[in-house]
Computed example of a mutant assay.
Amino acid sequence: MKALGQASTVDEKAAEAAIRAVPGWANADMRYALGIAGVASPTHRAVDSQNWFVARGDAPATYFLKILHTDQSDFIDLDRSVSAARQASTLGLTPAPLWHSPEMSAVVFDRLPEAWHTARMDDLRKRNVLESVIAAKSTLHGGTPLGETWTVFDRIRVVEKALVDAAVVEVAADGWWMRECVGDIEAAIIATGFDEKPAHADGLASNIMIAPDGRVQLVDFDEARNVDPFYDIGILLNEAFQFDSEMQPALEIFEGQFRQTSLNRCRLYAIADDLFWGMWGMLMDRVSPRGGIEFLKYAQWRLLRCRMALHNPRFEFMLRTL
């Protein structure tokens, strides 16, 4: 690990500036090392920020520093993200944020012990892990409302505008058709109504941490807002499972029973979420300076899954059965 004053790159200098800004750290023997490398495909992990492990002297690294990449400024509000994480930490669901600076786009968290590992999709298929993750999300749903409410359809409109501003004419040859179908999903969900609950609103396996004894923690609250709980669960199931028969037990865990209408709602939300992230990936491929991240590959995968789901003969049935 490097000590303060040993920075040799732009990123290291930014990390040192953030560390020095934390009260009590400027003159302390703080050390830091580059954390998790960003990758968009085949898994989506550490894409939104540069992250660092931070330690006091020769002690183990017990802090985690995130500095948001500038190309995410249209999508992430650091104050909102930290506020949501702080609320979740009081419920025992995530490590506590200790300090943040919107000006530096930086936040410091307690770091989970080394023995914890990032969840993989196959971890989510284990009954005990799935139960723990759904329990954590349900606990958050029962908490105090967060400061902002949105739907995935709102997010799609944000990225649509950004694509126009970036002069991206289309995300795919059939992009207009996918967008119209997702518009039908929004209309159907609005017509049937939905709850708005505080939520992690993140389906990525990489934003779930698992302890050796099976306990879980949710991390990265950049997407957290008040949403329909079935969106929160639907995007989790979309990450972990391919078939309805695999999703049914998870919905039994969530609701205490299986309801076809709930599965349909989850499936429809997953389609819309795939479209959003596909559009986001195409935007990042155009505007992000980070050429080493496979944004295009990630976008094409999410758009392909969206397209396949929309071609499912049951799509129209799901629209009418919410």
Rank of each mutant, 00 (worst) to 15 (best):
A3Q: 14
G5E: 02
Q6M: 14
E12C: 02
K13R: 14
E16Q: 11
E16I: 07
E16C: 07
R20L: 04
V22R: 04
Y32K: 00
Y32M: 00
L34D: 10
G35P: 10
G35I: 06
V39I: 14
P42L: 10
P42F: 10
T43A: 13
V47R: 05
V47G: 00
V47Y: 04
D48R: 12
D48M: 11
N51A: 04
N51E: 12
A55V: 06
A59P: 07
A59G: 04
P60K: 06
Y63N: 06
Y63I: 06
L68V: 08
H69G: 05
S73D: 15
S73I: 05
S73L: 12
F75V: 04
S81N: 09
A85V: 06
A88P: 05
L91G: 08
L93Y: 01
T94F: 00
P95A: 15
P97E: 04
W99M: 08
P102V: 07
P102Y: 08
M104I: 04
V107N: 03
V107G: 00
V108P: 05
F109I: 10
E114C: 03
W116K: 09
T118L: 01
A119F: 00
M121T: 13
D123T: 11
L124M: 13
R125W: 04
L130D: 05
E131N: 07
I134W: 02
K137T: 12
T139S: 05
G142W: 02
L146C: 10
L146K: 06
D154I: 03
R157H: 01
V158L: 07
E160L: 06
L163T: 01
A166S: 08
V169S: 15
A172E: 14
D174P: 08
G175S: 01
W177K: 09
M178P: 10
M178G: 08
A188S: 15
I189K: 08
I189R: 07
I189D: 04
T192E: 15
D195I: 02
P198Y: 00
N207I: 02
M209E: 00
I210M: 09
A211M: 03
D213I: 07
R215W: 03
R215E: 03
R215L: 03
V216I: 15
V216C: 11
Q217I: 00
D220N: 09
D222G: 15
A224P: 00
P229W: 12
F230K: 10
Y231T: 03
D232G: 00
L237M: 07
N238Q: 14
N238Y: 09
E239W: 03
F243N: 12
S245W: 01
L251E: 01
G256N: 08
G256D: 00
Q257R: 14
R259I: 02
Q260K: 13
T261Y: 01
T261F: 03
N264K: 10
R265L: 09
C266G: 13
R267L: 14
L268F: 04
I271S: 08
D273Q: 13
M279R: 10
G281T: 04
M282V: 13
M282F: 05
R290N: 15
I293M: 13
E294S: 13
Y298M: 03
H311W: 07
R314W: 11
E316Y: 09
